[in-house]
Write a protein that binds this DNA or RNA. Structure first.
Length: 426
RNA sequence: GGAGAGAUGCCGGAGUGGUCGAACGGGGCGGUCUCGAAAACCGUUGUCCUGCUUUGUCGGGACCGAGGGUUCGAACCCCUCUCUCUCCGCCA
């Protein structure tokens, strides 16, 4: 949620910011006009309530003295009616304001390039080199098929299209990657590990900004109105919903594994081969709560935490800074990590590292108390994948394939896999 | 799924219609004392909205799980909802 007071002060900045974010002109004038009406009604009703409070005290005093206060009570009856009608008017106006506010996305940070399509994203740098091979390489689906470590066909029988099923050493590899990443973030980067619920309430999904915009992209249970989380960012951020955190507890750093569920409605036919776009996948997520002053420093650290995983696995990747129009609803700035898949000859996004500033904190009402003056302010909240497995596995299988159709496991994973090479298990 | 109990400030916990924004205790913060600390004693202690001819140790308003109702006046009475806990049943 944006801060309506700031919009009031700098409407032009927000008008431009919103346009840069979505390319859609949002009606700031209407919002401010309703806000002005609301404030004038609040002033009016507050004055009447002040009167009512005063006279109520007088009535109490008269009663105490054993006299009758009939006249004043009669008078106040009218005031009470007026208050009631103004209160309901104000609550209508507040609903209107809220309905607009919850649909406004966060605006981008000044360092973010204004642009309206993914083509305008900036590639910041490359790490490592594209691997070369002296034999004909095959893509991850063919590898997985040959080795028998993925079974999409039988998974479709269970759930439908887009649900991967890992088999045998494939399943073990998946689990190894998850455990490796979690251990890495806990021991090397100082995160506290969380194993969160995988279903979240409407309030929680609203707090992180998935709702109302992305409702159609989430699976929801009929009876309980619970959403299957599309990312563990939702539970991690909502850990501190409605809380005031002492400043010296910040920064708070959480990491969690979760399965992630996405309907991916409307994306059929696009980039859907194999593991590149699926309805259920595994992801290790990182979330940080920080002060306003420090959040961009933490944003860079978070990026580097995610990069460390790819570097430890020695996979070639690039870092992309998203342009304003490609940012998600809640983000003010975002880096994507894209890992190279040599046979698919593509960079695949495996991580988004976002600074949402106080946008989510305002929705979820998460604040901190400053040590200096005891005042409260909204925390800044950042999230980053560290990282998501399906596309990581694409790059992994394609990068580490051998001419015999096997896959070599890098040494760092050996303690987790218990094997050094994936052979055919058919 | 059935039965019951509860939700009050940072925490515990009182309060059942009129100075209750809320007793009391604990914690935190400030002070006295001390070489320092502890103890003791004294003081202090929330959030949100809004106004401005004084942006202030300023004025007004709201907030006792949420929403509605009764009343001149609600933490307190009534209704609905949510959540938590206990017991029974079922179950990995």
């Amino acid at each position: 949620m944006l801060d309506i007071k700031k919009i009031r002060l700098e409407p032009e900045k927000y008008r431009k910011g919103l346009e840069a974010k979505g390319g859609i002109k949002k009606n700031i004038n209407l919002l401010l006009e309703i806000d002005a009406r609301r404030r004038s009604s609040v002033a009016e009703v507050d004055q009447l309530k002040g009167l009512r409070n005063k006279v109520s005290d007088e009535i109490a005093a008269i009663r105490k003295a054993g006299k009758s206060a009939g006249l004043k009570i009669k008078e106040m009856r009218k005031v009470a009616e007026k208050i009631k009608s103004l209160d309901s008017k104000i609550s209508d106006l507040e609903k209107k304001i809220k309905n607009i506010m919850i649909t406004l996305p966060n605006i981008s940070h000044e360092s973010v390039k204004v642009g309206y399509s993914p083509e305008e994203n900036e590639i910041l740098r490359y790490w490592g080199k594209k691997p070369t091979f002296d034999f004909k390489i095959i893509d991850h689906l063919d590898i997985a098929e040959t080795l028998g470590i993925l079974d999409f066909h039988r998974a479709a029988k269970i759930s439908g299209a887009g649900f991967p099923m890992y088999v045998g050493t494939g399943a073990k590899l998946e689990r190894a990657l998850i455990n490796f990443m979690l251990d890495f973030h806990v021991s090397k980067h100082g995160y506290k590990e969380i194993f969160p619920p995988f279903l979240a309430s409407r309030d929680s999904a609203f707090g992180t900004g998935q709702l109302p915009k992305l409702e159609d992209d989430m699976y929801v249970t009929n009876e309980e109105d619970l959403f299957l989380i599309p990312t563990s960012e939702i539970p991690l951020v909502n850990i501190h919903r409605e809380e005031i955190i002492p400043e010296n507890n910040l920064p708070i750093k959480y990491t969690a594994y979760s399965a992630c569920f996405r309907r991916e409605a409307g994306s059929y036919g696009k980039d859907t081969r194999g593991l590149s776009r699926v309805h259920q996948f595994n992801k290790v997520e990182m979330v940080r709560f920080t002060t306003a002053e420090d959040s961009y420093k933490h944003h860079e650290e978070l990026l580097s935490d995610a990069e460390d995983i790819l570097q430890a696995l020695n996979l070639h990747y690039r870092v992309v800074s998203l342009c304003s129009g490609d940012l998600s609803f809640a983000a003010a700035k975002c880096y994507d990590l894209e890992v190279w898949a040599p046979a698919s000859e593509k960079y695949f996004e495996v991580s988004s590292v976002s600074n949402c500033e106080d946008f989510q904190a305002r929705r979820a009402n998460i604040r901190y108390r400053k040590t200096s003056d005891g005042k409260v302010a909204f925390v800044h909240i950042l999230n980053g994948s560290g990282v998501a497995t399906p596309r990581l596995v694409i790059a992994f299988l394609e990068t580490y394939q051998t001419d015999e159709g096997k896959v070599i496991i890098p040494e760092i994973l050996h303690p987790y896999t218990g094997f050094k090479i994936i052979k055919s298990q058919k």
